[in-house]
Design a protein around this nucleic acid. Structure first.
Length: 264
DNA sequence: ATGGTCGACCATCGA
């Protein structure tokens, strides 16, 4: 079983690349972020032609999250409990969708960027992560054996070597102690980050600007935080760096979890 | 030496 997460940065601009990758990667469940469209503009048909059901949550041209699955897709939730809102008037954005696929509870998450330290969006980001921790604690309390994966674009680089040069990030978002603490608090709540053990040093994102990819000036901000039962099934992890190459690439690449079959 | 992008949509915002 393969479960992947990918910030596709517009599904309509990326449709051919995403479907081609789905076909050849052997991915059973794909969590997508930044689809950048409303539900009625999502290209469901090409996914269905490949045998995937899709649950999408998009309200407008911003954000947007989806889960595509060829192993079942049930119990879809379009926000997590207590998810904070943004804007005036504040509304809950399309940044979280959860679904059950082959007994796995998958959440596709697009954590707010934060923009700059001290920006209201930064406070929103911290509140969003704190609320996610609360929701996650609730799920594990209800069922300590739950098979849950919180995957997506976390917009946090938890360690200094998750960015190419810390001096560039002085006073910047993604690396600040409060953001890292909010990320660590979710781990402490019982969600192990499972990709780092398999891939100690890797980037998952390179900005389009300033030749970041050719220079390999990247960041590691896409992660999978899972319950204990889920973590025990992770046999391997891959980051498909090839998907950052060439014309029409997203600025993020897919992160793939290879899972052992369930033990009966 | 410095800067070099995309994608939403169609002037600017967001990342």
């Amino acid at each position: 079983m393969r479960v992947a997460t990918w910030n596709v940065n517009s599904i309509r601009a990326r449709l051919d690349r995403v479907t081609a990758w789905l076909e050849r990667s052997g991915t059973d469940v794909l969590a997508m972020q930044e689809t950048k469209c409303a539900d009625d503009a999502f290209p469901y048909l090409p996914f269905e032609a490949l045998g995937y059901e899709v649950a999408h949550h998009g309200l407008n041209q911003w954000n947007g999250v989806a889960i595509a699955s060829r192993v079942g897709l049930t119990d879809v939730h379009r926000a997590f409990p207590g998810q904070p809102g943004w804007g005036d008037p504040a509304g809950v954005e399309a940044r979280a969708i959860g679904a059950t696929c082959a007994g796995l509870r998958i959440w596709s998450l697009y954590v707010p960027n934060g923009r700059t330290l001290g920006d209201p969006h930064y406070e929103y980001k911290l509140a969003w992560l704190a609320a996610l921790r609360e929701a996650g604690t609730g799920w594990l309390t209800a069922d300590p054996a739950a098979m849950i994966a919180l995957v997506g674009d976390w917009n946090v680089a938890p360690r200094d070597d998750d960015v190419w040069d810390m001096s560039v990030f002085e006073g910047a978002t993604h690396v600040s102690p409060p953001e890292r603490a909010a990320f660590a608090a979710i781990e402490a709540a019982g969600f192990a980050e499972v990709t780092r053990a398999h891939l100690p040093q890797v980037y998952t994102y390179w900005d389009y600007q300033r030749l970041r990819f050719p220079r390999n000036e990247g960041m590691r901000i896409d992660f999978a935080l899972t319950s204990t039962g889920f973590a025990e099934r992770v046999r391997g992890v891959a980051v498909d760096r090839n998907e950052r190459k060439g014309k029409g690439a997203s600025d993020h690449v897919p992160v793939v979890l290879e899972l052992d079959p369930p033990t009966l």
